[in-house]
Design a protein around this nucleic acid. Sequence first.
DNA 1: TCTATTAGCGTACTACGTACACTGTACGAG
DNA 2: CTCGTACAGTGTACGTAGTACGCTAATAGA
Lengths: 295, 295
Amino acid sequence: MAARKKQEARPRVARQKTPAQTAQPAERELNRDDLVEASVRVDPDLRRRSELLWEDRSRSTRGPKAAFTPDDVVRAAIQIAEADGLAAVTMSAVSARLGLTTMAIYRYFPNKDALLDAIVDAAMGRPPSPSEPRGDWRADVAQWAHAKRAMLCARPWLAELPFVAAPHGPNWLSWVEAVVEPLSRIGLSAVDTGEMLSVIDGYTRGASDTAISLARARARGTSDAEWTAAVGADLGRAIGDARFPAFAALITAPSGCHPRTMERSFDFGLQRVLDGIERYVESATNLSAGMGSSA
Amino acid sequence: MAARKKQEARPRVARQKTPAQTAQPAERELNRDDLVEASVRVDPDLRRRSELLWEDRSRSTRGPKAAFTPDDVVRAAIQIAEADGLAAVTMSAVSARLGLTTMAIYRYFPNKDALLDAIVDAAMGRPPSPSEPRGDWRADVAQWAHAKRAMLCARPWLAELPFVAAPHGPNWLSWVEAVVEPLSRIGLSAVDTGEMLSVIDGYTRGASDTAISLARARARGTSDAEWTAAVGADLGRAIGDARFPAFAALITAPSGCHPRTMERSFDFGLQRVLDGIERYVESATNLSAGMGSSA
DNA sequence: TCTATTAGCGTACTACGTACACTGTACGAG
DNA sequence: CTCGTACAGTGTACGTAGTACGCTAATAGA
């Protein structure tokens, strides 16, 4: 991540790009040509990273044979992250795992950022395909949310990376596709569907953080009891402090935040969110049917 | 963050702590004594960091006078982060900004992690106090969510830090208190209130990520048009790809993801989430009133 | 066969976090 | 008043990270 930081710190001299086409129409529909045209304006670094995620890196003809594929490198890096955490994923460590010298990975990825991009996409994997698309969007969306949460908890180091930000690879898009599909079946407008996507994904990522934190602790060898004690000691600062009466009352009562009940809690909240969406769907459907019933 | 990483990577030899009190009762109510007892079991590093956030660092008597206070150091660090991003916050940079040599900050914070803890808490600031507590939990919660989102967008570098994780300082607790207070007024059980807290906060953090990403781009000097182009080029990979039909259809339609409409979108989703909570409140209230009405 | 291309190596440089020993200052105990 | 102790800030040095650059050798196409 040091590399990522460097990228952010670079423009100390704020580079003001030529503000030539500030007033370009953004409300139009997108098509391929627009995107090709648009991508020209995109930061070359970002464009290169995106290309590395998508291009077919099949063998080029000349020169000596490479001992590994980029996928091998990514796999090695992921194994290191699984075993020793994201911080252990250094260029030297990855190289060493493959039996290469440090500089050899730079033949596969131009820098660590590009490697991390590939790691993120590979580590996400594919979403589980819904058992049978029986038209029940609510069940499918719930299943997706649980799957995404489980994916993040299984690889808690993944959430340390800014995997919400560009560039996104095929697996990332697959995950999005897997929610958008059931959401589209609701029959809302595209804009509304986008809103619902944001609601579901936002809740899923945000509400998974505690579980991810626990998973991280487990990966470090911390027991659940120790983690609970640490959280309690941390939040317990509120108890007896006049500034936090409501929160103190909350955590003093028998708590719902235990490793055992966390997934149940997640599902409970998810059902509330889905309720909210459903209420909107009902009202929108009623409205479009001309019945004017308010929810 | 390199320091944070190091901390994660440290236990390559998985240190299995003495699993002595694995079966300690966690379902009981918490009180001060429990917490003191519990905190003994907590990772000393974490405990020290928490203490640094909470203890009164008033002047000790002996020795030469310190030129600055820990708050001065934190302020300097935050100024650097505001100007050049989180990556520019190095121990040397902070020292230099205060006119000190690199090693001088170690007189104020034992290491970079501790400094970052303080930065996070200071940068969060205090939540705005609700205009007048008129008993409308929904309005107060919505105001809180918008405020938290605004706070994160104003300091996009803050979201790069694991500020969901321990240790938490007084400002962090103030933010929590500020939602728990209106949520408590609903009259749900403590457990249910905790669930709602998780729903609201989860949605708020998760659904703010896109706006944070935009804010980050702006901080780098990227124009909104460039950012939109970059996002379009990134997600546009889905267009024409048979693997992502639903998502392609979504982004091909006139999109709702524009800088101008982002806050409106956030609020729209927030209203859905609040609807879901409200529906639960209604059903729970009806149930407790013995009317057995199902939602 | 010759040559352009490229995989992997070795060396070296820079930036960062931080350990450690040192200097000088200022308060409080004698 | 003075002296010793505690502490602020300095300077040097080390380990680790990312990576630029030039070298060697292998390979396939001309």
